[in-house]
Design a protein around this nucleic acid. Structure first.
Lengths: 214, 214
DNA sequence: GCCGTTATTTATCGCATGATAATTTTCTGG
DNA sequence: CCAGAAAATTATCATGCGATAAATAACGGC
């Protein structure tokens, strides 16, 4: 019955992919499953999602932990868009506009339920990745915000950005992230308020820095 | 060997507690374990923490899910301190002072690693408890903030507090919670900045409402 | 078109899990 | 002080888990 064997091929996906392609599919399945069920999701369910048998997974990852690390890499390491750096540095626009645009793009990535859930699961099980990503946020987003705002206000730029300078930016950045989770868990409709929430956060920062300057 | 039986009694805790007391001990053990390992922590580990055997747990809870619900009740339902309502309503103090005090007390409870971790675990597995608690925060904290601030500014109090009025309060409240998690996961030292962070958040709200008023 | 490399599957292990039934032990009321 | 209610333990089951070894089958190069 060649037809059976063919329909079988058609149904249970093509076998014998290149190692790289197979690995990618496994990671994709793991991302989806772990985002839903947390990192305690089983390797059998990952395999089912990838359309393969469970032991094959162990040809590509020596153990479950290394699969989890691959998920981290896919979702967190690769989530930073290199265009964003240019956006934040573009002094042809006012700081407020730059960061409004940036945060609209950034939250489009970061408010994705998959990203949000994995982020929270990861924070609860692995302090290291949380620490690393917070460092990235601080260096790539919050410190540039403080610096660019100083430039705009014509203030002395010789001083480094201090811990105290970052308190308010962290408060607002955290508030936005919290809003993302809230709106996902509560099922808040579509985009209602995302841009506006960002605008409010920036409003407060600009009001605050203005008050300090004057 | 009566002495052996006695030392045994001393070591492995007294048997035959009253049902209520035993139940409380089980829930306490579950709170500690689930906060650390998430709700996938095993019933055997809960039992070990409570100093009992695992099947006994099933005399007090028909299944694991009902134990989890008991943990929710212990940590979330019972976490609201009734004195707080009085604090927020006490018009002998300026709104800013009232909420500064309140948030210092509130974050003392809510920045407890056990509370923070369980809260995040719960949000990821059970939208309902998250929804319920967010409603409590909105009704008990954020709406009172908006209303009392209106009174202080002598503005029209006939209008209900709208979704838009709550955007900024939510942003700041979320920012504070985020700060709590951050400081726990990153192991930030002691109380450094907690009061100051609260003051900053309130500063921004008051600046914002002042600007809108003027 | 076969042949060997290797991607993939089948079979299986040891262990941990949630849950149940039967047994034992402890405390209390008469 | 002892009898019985019930608190607690021991023994056990079925299932699901991460992981490994052996068998099979698909594809590329000659």
């Amino acid at each position: 019955m060649a037809s059976v064997s063919q329909s079988k091929t058609a149904l249970q996906s093509r076998r014998r992919l290149s190692p790289d392609a197979r690995k990618d599919e496994i990671v994709s399945a793991a991302v989806a499953l772990f985002a839903e069920n947390g990192f305690d999701g089983s390797t059998r369910d990952v395999a089912r999602g990838a359309g393969i048998t469970q032991p094959l997974l162990y040809r590509y990852f020596p153990n479950k932990e290394s699969l989890i690390e691959a998920v981290y890499a896919r979702v967190f390491l690769e989530s930073w868009n290199s265009e964003w750096d240019a956006m934040l540095a573009d002094r042809s626009l006012p700081v407020r506009d730059r960061f409004q645009r940036f945060y609209e793009a950034y939250t489009e990535t970061v408010f994705d339920p998959v990203w949000l859930r994995l982020w929270n699961f990861a924070a609860l099980r692995d302090a290291q990745i949380y620490q690393w990503y917070n460092h990235v946020v601080e260096e790539q987003i919050l410190k540039p915000l403080v610096r660019e705002r100083r430039v705009e206000l014509g203030r002395d730029q010789r001083f480094q950005v201090s811990r105290a300078d970052l308190e308010v930016p962290w408060l607002l950045h955290g508030g936005l992230l919290h809003h993302g989770l809230r709106r996902h868990v509560l099922g808040i409709d579509a985009d209602m308020g995302r841009e506006h929430m960002i605008a409010q956060a920036l409003n407060m920062y600009f009001l605050m820095t203005e008050a300090q300057a004057g």
